[in-house]
Design a binder for these strands. Structure first.
Length: 775
DNA sequence: CAGTGAGCGAGCTTCCGCTTGACTT
């Protein structure tokens, strides 16, 4: 029997460590926290010094009872959870739950999973740091108090089943406020003027190059004047400057930067990235993927040097250590890196291979030399103007880390031209081959993507590597925000070109405002946000987390008592909750748009029981008010009176088909066509319920019938309720509203009625499929 | 799956941070 039991947080980590420690050590995992505040109610006795009521979570009961068995057989228990606030608390909860005796328990920590680090840790055990544990308890309880007192307030004042919290409410606020900036953004335009030049009489081969006027011109008439004046201007090189510059590699990946790069380079969502990284981690290919540390183990740096020297030569190697600047970083792990630096590629799914290669490149590049560049600027004078044309170019003198990896940016209009410029001398005479002027518009601030939201939250010190992905899921599930791709609009711009002595002026069109997978606030998100900002501006302040983090640090340092800190926070907070319950109105975001020209009654938009809606007339009127739901993409904040009135024209009769009437309406799941009591959805982005015609509706009905037909693989005469259907996960049997899987070994079209019966009997009698409520 | 929108009231919802499965028919 092993004499030593080591408990870590993650099973994959347990496996690795067991290899390092050898026979006398049994290494097991707690799978994260084993105990938490009970979920049912607030579970904090605020009257009694904030006494927490901890329970073992249902999904951890089995693990705890297993660990208890191992503890019984061990002479010494080593608690080896992470060295941060949460890790210390995990160790403490374990010692409580497992009834560990002090003389039989040791606490050890390490920041990297290397043999040396582990053996060193074993040599220097310590006791559990109760101050650090208390800092975690304060964090946990504060989050519970905020979340479980604010959420019920929203149920009362806005809508049931809503939620609020220290992290999610700030995330929503960022998105709502950004959207308002965008709505209020006033665009302006000016002409960007560029010319193509060539040296005159050089005797050398022609080498045309581009240069831009050093100022933009706002008015079209002024542009015309300028271009006309260019007709008889001459151009001369006034100065040439060459400046050497350097570019350094980005540090190795943390959770947040990995999510950002995987989003920019591959379009992965943050949860996709985490799921793929988890696989790589479990297969022992990368280090832990939930980390805020930029640190690499010495062993990894050494391995990178060997690899770089081998692949590119010593000139390319430059070992570096990176220091984190992130607020609140706890650095319990290494940065995310390949386990073996000499594994340039791995075998796996396409996504795994891609993500691994990205991690390999980023890690290797972080240990490579700077790139050396030379920036050249050429100023060109215009004989009859005091403005200049400026040409700039960049030449890479030594590629360094750029050989391997280049970080992407969020900047969409990143058309940096790395032009190569001809070899010119001061005073050289140039001729202009062509000059064009393009009207350019200023851009509104960008909407957040999942990854750029994570970046922002990290900058604010809000949330942790393990919560970035779940936080985004939460605000999407609550329908505070939606992730959408929206087609842009056409925008007209003016284009002028001077060529061969002729000036042409054209109106041209460009696409603008196209948004791919961006986060948009919903009406409910905006209303909840405004409510919280109005009454709890201090809690959803961007600096709230930073300020309580300082208190948690003081608790960890033993400078203040955790209950004192909570008391100071809770009493004013709770009073505000009670005041708000008493004194605030129900909040629905109601807006009066004006009057309906038909009836003269007022038209409102607001959030109703089933979501955003428009209403004509008041509830107390003699005639009942009329209601209509808002369409997807419309919002309470921006809808106009005419758009709202348009909604009341539905449902609309389109005519007859097969002797039955066809109508179009908008329901819970969007616009639909109704015919013979069957519903057919309109095609998103193609059909518009207010303009669709009968012929198109019939097309859609036919399409739906066709796809229904393909859904059915086989029907049986014996029993009309027995069907073999083709579904999302392949063929399956449907019988009396319940579904059954077909074994992979059989061909579904060959199943007989009795075969199906047998499959159903084997699966056992099933209840009707429960309404899968989306969570 | 789809057309609703009064008010009553029972019983439900909810936080952040640590972890990984289970598994869709």
């Amino acid at each position: 029997m092993e004499e030593n039991l080591v408990i870590v947080e993650s099973p994959a980590k347990a496996k690795t460590i067991e290899r390092f420690l050898g026979k006398e050590f049994l290494v097991k995992s707690s799978f994260g926290h084993v105990r938490d505040l009970s979920k049912k109610d607030i579970s904090v006795d605020v009257e009694n010094n904030f006494e927490p009521n901890y329970t073992i979570s249902d999904d951890k009961k089995k693990i705890v009872s297993e660990l208890k068995k191992y503890v019984k057989n061990a002479k010494m228990v080593w608690l080896a959870s992470d060295e941060d606030r949460e890790g210390e608390a995990i160790a403490w909860h374990l010692s409580e739950v497992l009834n560990l005796k002090e003389e039989k328990t040791k606490r050890i920590v390490f920041h990297e999973i290397t043999k040396d680090a582990i053996l060193n840790a074993i040599k220097s055990p310590r006791a559990i740091d109760k101050n650090l544990v208390n800092a975690q308890q304060a964090r946990r309880i504060l989050d519970r108090l905020v979340g479980y007192e604010l959420s019920p307030l929203l149920w009362k004042k806005v809508k049931p089943a809503l939620s609020a919290g220290r992290v999610q409410s700030v995330a929503v606020r960022l998105i709502v406020e950004r959207e308002r900036e965008i709505i209020n953004f006033k665009t302006s335009s000016a002409f960007r003027i560029t010319g193509i030049f060539e040296e005159m009489n050089s005797g050398k081969e022609k080498f045309p190059f581009k240069a831009e006027l050093n100022k933009r011109i706002e008015k079209k008439a002024d542009v015309e004047n300028f271009l006309n004046s260019c007709l008889d201007a001459t151009y001369k090189v006034e100065s040439i400057t060459k400046k050497p510059s350097k570019r350094s590699p980005a540090p190795p990946f943390t959770t947040s930067t990995l999510q950002q790069e995987a989003s920019r380079k591959f379009g992965f969502s943050v949860s996709q990235t985490m799921a793929i990284a988890q696989k790589l981690y479990e297969n022992g290919l990368i280090t832990y993927m939930r980390t805020d540390s930029l640190n690499l183990s010495q062993a990894a740096i050494n391995a990178a040097v060997v690899e770089i020297n081998k692949l590119f030569g010593e000139k390319y190697s430059k070992p570096r250590n990176f220091k984190t600047k992130t607020k609140g970083a706890q650095e319990a792990h290494e940065a995310i890196r390949p386990t073996y630096m000499n594994n340039q590629r791995i075998e796996g799914s396409a996504a795994e291979e891609k993500l691994y290669e990205l991690i390999w490149k980023r890690t290797i590049a972080s240990q490579m030399s700077d790139a050396e560049l030379e920036k050249t600027t050429i100023n060109i004078t215009i004989s009859n103007s005091k403005n200049l044309f400026v040409a700039s170019g960049e030449v890479i003198k030594f590629d360094g880390f750029l050989k391997v990896y280049m970080e992407s940016t969020d900047d969409e209009e990143n058309d940096k031209s790395e032009a190569i410029l001809p070899d010119l001398k001061n005073g050289a005479e140039l001729e202009s081959k062509e000059i064009e002027a393009i009207q350019k518009f200023t851009n509104h601030p960008p909407r957040y993507t999942e990854a750029s939201l994570v970046k922002k939250l990290e900058e604010l010190g809000i949330g942790r590597p393990s919560t970035y992905a779940p936080t985004i899921s939460t605000i999407l599930n609550r329908e505070y925000v939606v992730k959408e791709t929206r087609e842009g609009n056409d925008r007209k711009y003016t284009y002028l070109r001077l060529k061969s002595g002729k000036l042409i002026i054209e109106d041209r069109k460009e696409k603008t405002g196209f948004e791919k997978n961006k986060l948009f606030p919903t009406d409910i998100g905006s209303v909840v946000n405004d409510f919280l900002v109005q009454y709890f501006d201090d809690i959803i302040d961007f600096n709230f987390t930073a300020s309580v983090e300082k208190d948690f640090d003081d608790i960890a340092d033993g400078k203040i008592e955790w209950q004192k800190m909570l008391k100071k926070f809770y009493h004013p907070f709770h009073k505000k909750i009670e005041d708000t319950i008493k004194n605030s109105e129900k909040s629905s975001g109601e807006r009066n748009l004006g009057n309906d020209p038909g009836s003269g009654k007022p038209v409102y938009v607001k959030i109703g029981r089933y979501g955003p809606m428009a209403q004509i007339g008041d509830a107390q009127d003699e005639e009942k008010p009329k209601f209509a739901r808002l369409l997807k993409g419309q919002s309470i904040e921006t809808i106009t009176l005419n758009e709202a009135l348009e909604l009341f024209k539905l449902p609309r009769d389109l005519g007859e088909f097969e002797g039955l009437s066809v109508s179009v309406g908008v329901g819970r799941f969007g616009p639909y066509i109704r015919h013979n009591n069957k519903f057919v959805s309109l095609k998103k982005g193609v059909d518009d319920p207010s303009t669709i015609e009968l012929s198109r509706a019939i097309e859609l009905i036919a399409e739906k019938r066709e796809s229904e037909k393909n859904k059915t693989i086989k029907v049986f005469d014996q029993d009309k309720e027995m069907l073999i259907l083709n579904g999302r996960y392949g063929p399956y049997i449907s019988y009396k509203k319940a579904n059954y899987r077909i074994p992979k070994s059989v061909k579904p079209e060959e199943l007989s009625f009795d075969d199906c019966k047998a499959i159903i009997d084997k699966a056992g009698v099933k209840k009707k499929p429960g309404k899968t409520k989306k969570k």
